[in-house]
């Protein structure tokens, strides 16, 4: 046994109320959903909680509900559920595509979407699609619930706005037909599959005539949190579609990111590929929008 886990008190719950009450009473707690991050984090000593609350048995938190103008995804929905869901494939294909590149099949069978967000890795795979769709995160505690725009959810590497007593309950994604259809996702890792992001980019857009009506772009692994590329977005809004405009816009992404060098890539390389992938995803999304000739 190469790794030694800290000694823990293990509590398994099957009802939401139970975990909420435990969270309000216990100190030094970690919540275990799929465990694919938490168990590793405990093995490498990143976290040494006194108590682990296993919430995987709360059946009422595993769902994907289509409410027409929005889709609600329960925190304990597995990544594999998302990929296989007809609702997500039709109405949020960018999420299905991003998640299908997360980990391996074995990991996707355990990992949950709530867990992916709560781990708050700068490289979280589910984040860019949810950022471009401006999802809301519903947090529940013994004191009630609140909804936070996902754009405000992450505060730093492995940090979120969640209070100690709160549980990530569900993700609410507004449905927008144009954004849903006109999307592109690209992930660059150190190899083609089962890999962490060097950078990943999700792009959705709306076109009117020959102009960009609206553009939303999000990236992971190039800042302390997953981020939106606001300078690229506002530059493109209203502009006439063309190769030069896209080229110029893509370069602006460096204003939105602050990459670091790590074992996967240097900061300089990340800046470079961020520009390349922003450009590529814009072009691919435009193809889906039916715009044929992008060049002047």
């Amino acid at each position: 046994m190469f790794y030694k886990l800290p000694e823990i008190e293990y509590i398994r719950v099957s009802e939401l109320d139970e975990v909420l009450s435990l969270l309000s009473r216990k100190e030094d707690v970690k919540v275990l959903a799929g465990g694919t991050d938490l168990v590793i984090d405990m093995k490498i000593g990143r976290y040494k909680p006194k108590t682990v609350i296993d919430i995987s048995g709360i059946k009422s938190l595993r769902y994907i509900v289509d409410e027409g103008d929005k889709i609600r995804i329960g925190a304990l929905t597995r990544m594999q559920d998302i990929i296989e869901s007809p609702v997500i494939r039709e109405k949020l294909p960018v999420l299905a595509e991003a998640v299908s590149m997360l980990g391996s099949w074995q990991i996707r069978n355990m990992a949950t979407v709530g867990g992916n967000l709560c781990s708050a890795s700068p490289a979280a795979d589910s984040a860019p699609p949810l950022l471009v769709h401006e999802a809301k995160i519903k947090l529940t505690s013994i004191e009630g619930t609140r909804e936070i725009p996902i754009t405000e959810f992450f505060t730093g590497p492995r940090k979120t706005v969640m209070h100690k007593i709160e549980l990530l309950h569900e993700i609410i994604v507004p449905y927008d037909e144009d954004f849903a259809r006109t999307y592109s996702y690209a992930k660059l890792g150190r190899r083609n599959s089962f890999t962490l992001s060097v950078v990943a980019v999700a792009t959705v857009l709306k076109v009117r005539g020959r102009r960009f009506e609206d553009v939303r772009i999000a990236l992971n692994a190039v800042a302390p949190t997953p981020v939106r590329a606001r300078s690229v977005e506002s530059f493109l809004r209203g502009k006439e579609i063309g190769e030069e405009v896209i080229e110029e816009a893509s370069e602006l992404v460096v204003n939105d990111i602050s990459p670091i060098s790590d074992v996967r890539a240097s900061a300089e390389y990340r800046r470079h590929v961020s520009m390349v992938l922003v450009r590529d995803t814009l072009l691919k999304a435009l193809e889906k929008s039916g715009v044929k000739e992008v060049s002047k």
Binding site: Y10, R12, T36, Q106, N109, M110
Partner: peptide, 16 residues
Amino acid sequence: LLNGSPVNSCLILTPH
């Protein structure tokens, strides 16, 4: 196989 799905047993606490 956990309930029919392939998973990594090195990432699972036995009580789970």
